[in-house]
Design a protein around this nucleic acid. Structure first.
Lengths: 190, 190
DNA sequence: TGTACATCAGTGAACGCGCGTTCACTGATGTAC
DNA sequence: TGTACATCAGTGAACGCGCGTTCACTGATGTAC
């Protein structure tokens, strides 16, 4: 063999990983296949030996990004509970680096325009993160915990999306601060 | 004159209005100038007599959409206060008709990738809605009221964006319901 | 041990297509003389 | 009153460009005999 045994899988994984980062940074439509492959030192023709089409890559990149976000959330929750996760999510670091951040503020809107099949995959992966967060929340029943987790994700992702859109740095900071403070109060009140 | 005196302004307004709806439905990149003009019974060449370029149209369409949302919010707030606005925002009607809904869940992410000048305009227009909502909220100082308004917009816009992305209707409903309930509790607690 | 062939990840030219943008033009009307 | 010209919103062919996708090919290696 010209290449090592797992060479193709490694290349495949590299493409998915890089795509998931670029998609979060520039959106699905802002990332071209030729440019993406070139960034990995590959030519664009080989792309179709790895993926059926661009939609296939989007699916796999979304799954990868959710997995990555899950790990980051898992770490923060283990380290300092929901408060630590909220602090991390509303940080300037997260706001300023969408490519390495949560999928929700960067790709939810575009995902909403994709096929029902892709959106079902999105829902399934999102559920995993919701369940994870719910485990770290108080509540009499799993439904109550999950409802609270959904609310927290809504507030967090909305605040980061708007903070990134706002050209005014003071406003961006105020959005993230307000959400952090109100969620902190919310958690204390439970 | 071949046309009435205000004919051009009316055409201009029609383009902006339609664009603001199409942009919210399909995203900035999902709307082509030729198709947009064709939908209004016009040819694409005339576009550049009305706008400098597509970015110019985006700016004007965003401003228009914010103005429209402002009026809708204003009505709901006058009719039933913040609770009525929250109910309307988290309704299935709003979730299922992005073209006629709030700009935040549909265009915040893409706006975050635009020029600093455009984002500054976004920030200014968003502030108007924040101030409007803040007026209807309790709080000792204007800053406290505005902070609460920012939090509410974050939670609302995030919930609608994720609910639209989720292919599972049960999950979509749960996201909107949770946000509605938690915000209702939040408002009662103030 | 040497030769012919099979394998297969990756290459790069070529395709059709839709996009934003330009520009010479049209044609109905108003105006000047 | 009639003719020549100016105005100007809108037309539609044409442009270069980047996109997703296809496909005949390459070339290093493994395998068969």
């Amino acid at each position: 063999m010209r290449y090592e045994e797992d060479h193709k899988e490694k290349t495949h994984a590299k493409i998915v990983e890089r795509a998931s980062q670029e998609f979060r940074e520039h959106g699905f439509e802002g990332v071209g296949i030729a440019k993406l492959m070139a960034k990995l030192g590959l030519s664009h023709g080989g792309f179709y030996a790895h993926f059926e089409d661009k939609e296939d890559l989007k699916d796999q990149a979304m799954e990868h990004a959710f997995g990555e976000s899950f790990e980051i959330a898992s770490d923060a929750l283990r380290r300092g509970g929901v408060l630590a996760y909220v602090e991390h999510y509303t940080s300037d670091l997260h706001k300023d680096h969408p490519g390495y951040g949560c999928v929700l503020p960067t790709l939810s809107t575009e995902e909403g325009r994709r096929s029902p099949e892709s959106r079902a995959k999105f829902a399934r992966k999102f559920q995993e993160s919701v369940d994870l967060l719910a485990e770290h929340l108080p509540g009499d029943t799993p439904e109550v915990k999950r409802g609270r987790a959904l609310f927290i994700f809504s507030a967090l992702s909305g605040s980061v999306a708007i903070a990134r859109a706002a050209g005014d740095p003071l406003l961006s900071a105020a959005i993230l601060r307000s959400t952090r403070e109100q969620l902190t109060q919310f958690l204390r009140g439970l």
